[in-house]
Computed example of a mutant assay.
Amino acid sequence: MLNLPTLSKNGITLEPLTLEHAHDLAAACQDGDLWTITTTSVPEPDKVIEYINKAQEMPDRSAFAVIDEHTGKAIGSTSYHDILPLPRRLEIGYTWYAQSYWRTQVNTTCKLMLLTYAFETLDYLTVGWRTDIGNHRSQQAIERLGVTKDGVIRGNRVCRDGVISDTVMYSLLKSEWPEIKTQLQERLASTQ
């Protein structure tokens, strides 16, 4: 587990996830009935406290609440996970936002902050992402970042409905980061 800072940019703050965020996150996951999407990790509204406790107990996960600075409310969550200190590799995932924030600057802003911190402060060499093969929205969001699709791991995950599914893997190397950083900054500047 990493010792997380609070990160802030463009009206979005990432702060370490705590039980203080439970009420807001219960409301956020109801914005679009997100827990009904079987290929995501969004908790049911009445299971948000369990979700937060589990995130805090996982030794290789460090979770953030995503805060809309204009409202002061948590609108979702994202995490570093599968943290491997020796090869200096981690993944970004367990990411979800209230549906009213989809296709806004929120995801790009969060990824810019997370990637900047991972590569430039933590000095990690590789950042990865994974998503269910059936979660096309997530795949499109990851691919919009400009990262490399590494491939598919077949039959390695169980969806919340019990179906065994495949995982699509992506990664970004530290040497590729400057170009992607510029692209993300330009994308954000064009939406301001």
Rank of each mutant, 00 (worst) to 15 (best):
D68R: 03
L25G: 04
T13Y: 07
T167W: 06
Y80D: 01
Q183E: 00
T95L: 08
V48R: 00
K73M: 13
L34Y: 03
L19F: 00
R61H: 06
C29Q: 09
K54R: 14
L25Q: 06
M113D: 14
A26K: 10
R103C: 12
T18V: 05
S41P: 02
V163C: 01
Q192M: 11
D132W: 04
V147M: 08
Q185K: 08
S138M: 14
V147Q: 11
H136D: 15
E186A: 15
L34C: 13
Q30N: 02
N10Q: 13
Y101K: 06
G72I: 10
L17E: 04
T18R: 13
L86C: 13
L25N: 03
G72W: 14
T71D: 11
I142T: 10
I164R: 13
A55R: 07
W177G: 07
Y101G: 09
L145Y: 14
Q139L: 00
Q139V: 09
W102E: 03
K111T: 12
R103D: 15
P43N: 08
D68N: 15
A22S: 09
S165G: 04
V127C: 13
L115K: 14
P87Y: 03
M58A: 10
I67F: 06
L115M: 15
L112N: 02
A26R: 06
K54P: 00
H21D: 09
L19V: 12
A118F: 01
T108Y: 04
A118R: 06
K73V: 09
W102I: 13
S41E: 14
E176C: 05
K111M: 13
K111D: 11
I153M: 03
V152E: 03
E176T: 12
D132P: 01
N3G: 00
L173F: 05
E44F: 09
A74P: 06
R88C: 12
I164F: 07
Q105I: 00
L112A: 08
V66G: 07
R103M: 12
T71P: 08
W129G: 05
P45M: 13
Y117F: 14
E44G: 01
Q30H: 01
T95G: 11
P16F: 03
A74Q: 03
E69I: 04
Q56C: 05
E186C: 03
L4T: 13
R89K: 06
K181M: 06
E69Y: 04
L34P: 06
V158M: 12
T6H: 00
K73W: 01
S8P: 00
E143Q: 15
R157F: 07
I133H: 11
Q139T: 09
F119A: 14
D161H: 05
K73G: 03
M113R: 07
S138F: 09
I37Y: 04
P85E: 10
Y94V: 02
S8Y: 06
E50M: 10
A98F: 03
Q192V: 08
G155H: 01
G162C: 10
A74E: 00
I142K: 05
G162W: 04
N10V: 01
A65I: 09
R88L: 11
D60S: 15
